[in-house]
């Protein structure tokens, strides 16, 4: 799924990484606990979260993620945006809640960890 499709499905605004809108991502995860992201996530490219602090960006960087979606209208700080830009990540914000945002992406083909979605 292209990052531009994520933006459209979630009615999201792109905060940084406009040049990555055409990039393809293949899986995602959603969590407000960075501990769980570090423990359970494997090869997901997109992180959806309602947590807003610099550790969200660093966690994503450690996991080689390329796109972060802040849900529930959460706004990343200037410092977080700069950090994300440094790491070459796209950052989006949406008014949707975590469950709804994950659901929209999932039914449109963006799977989670270890899940193969059949045609």
């Amino acid at each position: 799924m292209k990052i531009s499709t994520i933006r459209d499905l979630l009615d999201a605004k792109i905060v940084c990484g406009e040049d990555m809108l055409d990039d393809d991502v293949f899986s995602a995860c959603g969590s407000d606990m960075m501990s769980d992201v570090l423990a359970y996530v494997k090869d997901q490219a997109v992180l959806l979260t309602g947590l807003v602090n610099s550790q969200v960006i660093r966690t994503a960087e450690m996991m080689d993620m390329v796109c972060i979606v802040f849900v529930r209208s959460k706004q990343p700080t200037r410092e977080m945006i700069d950090l994300a830009r440094d790491h070459g990540m796209a950052v989006l914000t949406t008014d949707m809640r975590l469950y709804e945002a994950c659901g929209k992406l999932y039914v449109n083909g963006l799977v989670g960890n270890g899940t193969v979605k059949h045609e």
Binding site: D32, M33, M34, S35, D36, L38, A39, T49, L51, N53, Q55, V56, T59
Partner: peptide, 12 residues
């Protein structure tokens, strides 16, 4: 509330 402290650090 900062997203850590779930007791996963050392096992991880």
């Amino acid at each position: 509330s900062l997203g850590f402290g779930a007791g996963m650090g050392l096992p991880n």
